[in-house]
Design a protein around this nucleic acid. Structure first.
Length: 596
RNA sequence: GCCCCGGUAGCUCAGCUGGAUAGAGCAACGGCCUUCUAAGCCGUAGGUCACGGGUUCGAGUCCCUUCCGGGGUACCA
């Protein structure tokens, strides 16, 4: 039984016996004792004063005495104001450490036949432009939350819906036809997704000139945006595409193939992957069918102009268009089709969509629509809504080319890592190939940690002028701590010092106990990170653990410690921290180098 | 206009779902390498938790007003 549960239970007994009060668990607050006070765990006694009718100090003393008598591992207690602090016995902490040390799955929940199957959709790129920093956040969050859910015993299917059709790709296609002069990734040496992105920007450039001209000639802006020759041409392409026009389909396939090849490179660099990929071009027709079924069954209705709508006002939402008046599908149409396809493919218990918070409303609507269409899983879908990445100048805009490109950013990070590492002379004995591997680990680790340590729900700021740090609260800090630990363990092995379990020492220092306490929190942190869909909770834990290890490392000898059992204890501590930090960071998608 | 989210140190972020004197990192200043990796450790300085009210033993945390920022808002995705 874990210590907190034990205190809960015995406190309930104490309140009954001392004050004849039947408490429930949620009236009892247990927290970690603040560092400035003596003790490990603290019970807040204020809520009990109404029943004890005594001072906070007196009440604390009485409950404290009761618990001390009835719980063996409580060594002593003290009361300060309304706070009852317990000192937990050394044995308890040593037991936890030994458990964490020997159990390679410490804190992890194993999946079984009854485990929920969770499908996590993330990435979901459009095929008209390369990935940028906003997509990086999405990809890292999606990958990490998938791993965290697995660590919580869920069966996870990582999925990607590629938005490979629609007006956006037609814009790039039209621009390429018109101004491309046969440019290809092969003959230009430009990565495919970047090349297609160039034409998307090219399209917008011409489009805006055309709109400006029309406005200058007296047309209203809104109409001009509808009448510009470029947009008309792009729309024609979309209609031809939907009509399966051979030439259009060929061009579409060619350009998308360029993009996929480019995306694969970026995904690989980022270390993210998918178990199943869906394409909008395969799902949007199913979406249409579902919408029409909805019309037939009376959930949706057709306007005079033959556009199709859902009236969601009784659900507290607005009316929502589902098919345009020309019969083409809108964004949400394909989401309906994709959902149907997925639930046919997998026995999904829970669907998680990793999509930015600008689409909060969209998912509210989708949930209701799916429910109306008779899917009972519609109501339970989870929109993992994350904040935007902003630049100092504001929101990123692909069309204006105002973005931090994913590939560029990664390569810049690697350059900085290489430079820094060379200056410090850390990897002088490494081969070039080996060193390059480590630079990439450090660069990616810094980038991933930088993004994942922030609460996903919040917007975050990225300043391209200041490169991401390798000192302080960073990925490199945690990696560095790990390499220190590995170094100590290597040296122990060199000296034929074996690290054995069942460690027992006469006394442990404050720093040592702090570390064990932090270790003991690992299982709860994993659960919390999973329940809250928050890699940030785990990232910050890894930092705290590493930070406390560095303090310990600074203040204590490990290998040099003459007393064998003490030395062993510290080696066990070190190995355990190393293991947890590696595990924790791996759930964030961060790799750990052995040396740096 | 209406709806949602946010505002914590100069900057970037934590703050365990209402508990003790609000914490880190960066930037600034000072100290620590003949002992296991100094990408580290220690210290100094830095705060009206946007503003004003309320709820209570106790509020950065919950409620309301106002201000500021971001997002959404029926044929963009």
């Amino acid at each position: 039984m874990n210590i907190e549960r034990l205190i809960f239970t015995i406190t309930i007994n104490a309140l009954k016996e001392l004050y004849n009060f039947e408490a429930s668990e949620d009236q009892i607050q247990i927290q970690n004792t603040r560092k400035d006070f003596e003790g490990d765990l603290t019970l807040v006694v204020f809520p009990f004063l109404r029943f004890s009718k005594k001072s906070p100090e007196k009440t604390g003393e009485e409950i404290g005495a009761y618990l001390e008598k009835n719980i063996e591992i409580i060594e002593s207690f003290n009361v300060i104001k309304g706070f009852l602090n317990f000192v937990i016995s050394k044995k308890y902490w040593l037991d936890i450490l030994n458990e964490a040390f020997v159990n390679d799955d410490f804190g992890l929940v194993k999946e079984n036949e009854n485990s929920d199957l969770v499908m996590v959709e993330y990435s979901s790129p459009n095929t008209n432009k390369p990935l940028h920093l906003g997509h990086i956040r999405n990809n890292l969050l999606g990958y990490s939350i998938s791993e965290i859910l697995k660590a919580n015993g869920k069966r996870v299917v990582k999925t990607n819906i590629v938005n490979d059709r629609g007006i956006h790709i037609c814009k790039s296609m039209f621009a390429w036809q018109k101004w491309g002069k046969g440019k290809t990734p092969e003959n230009s040496g430009i990565k495919g997704d970047h090349l297609v992105g160039e034409f998307y920007v090219e399209f917008d450039k011409h489009f805006r000139v055309e709109v400006a001209e029309l406005v200058a000639s007296g047309m209203a802006k809104e109409e001009a945006e509808n009448q510009a020759p470029s947009i008309i041409a792009a729309r024609e392409l979309l209609l031809k595409w939907e009509a399966k026009d051979k030439g259009t389909i060929d061009l579409w396939e060619k350009m998308n193939a360029w993009v996929y090849k480019g995306f694969d490179v970026t995904y690989k660099k980022l270390g993210v992957d998918f178990d199943k990929i869906y394409y909008e071009s395969d799902t949007y027709l199913i979406g249409k069918e579902e919408v029409l079924r909805g019309v037939n069954e009376g959930f949706f209705y057709k306007e005079k102009d033959s556009s199709v709508w859902a009236d969601l006002t009784s659900d507290g939402l607005d009316k929502k268009i589902l098919l345009r008046n020309d019969g083409t599908s809108v964004y949400i149409t394909q989401d309906i089709g994709t959902a149907k396809m997925r639930f046919a493919d997998y026995p999904i218990d829970k669907m998680v969509y990793v999509v930015g918070n600008e689409q909060n409303y969209h998912f509210q609507v989708l949930s209701v629509l799916l429910d109306k269409l008779g899917y009972d899983w519609g109501k339970g879908l989870h929109h993992f809504s994350y904040g935007m990445v902003e630049l100092p100048s504001g929101k990123m805009k692909s069309r204006e080319g105002k973005v931090v490109d994913a590939d560029d950013l990664i390569e810049e990070m690697v350059d900085v890592a290489r430079k820094m590492s060379t200056e410090l002379g850390k990897l002088d004995t490494f081969s070039e190939v080996e060193a390059e591997k480590v630079y990439r680990m450090i660069a990616l680790g810094a980038l991933k940690y930088f993004i994942l340590k922030v609460d996903p729900k919040k917007n975050m700021l990225f300043n391209p002028e200041e490169s991401i740090d390798f000192n302080g609260n960073t990925g490199a800090f945690v990696q560095y701590t790990y390499t220190r630990i590995k170094s100590v363990l290597r040296k122990a092995a060199d000296k034929n010092i074996t690290v054995h379990n069942g460690t027992d020492v006469d006394s442990i220092s404050i720093k040592e106990k702090d570390l064990v306490k932090r270790i003991s929190l690992f299982p709860a942190i994993l659960i919390e990170a999973g329940d809250n869909y928050s890699p940030a909770i785990l990232a910050n834990y890894c930092y705290e653990l590493a930070k406390e290890y560095n303090q310990f490392y600074h203040d204590h000898f490990i290998l040099i410690e003459p007393e064998p059992e003490k030395r062993n204890f510290r080696l066990v501590l070190s190995a355990t921290v190393g293991k947890l930090v590696k595990k924790g960071m791996s759930l964030l998608g961060v790799e750990m180098p052995e040396r740096m």
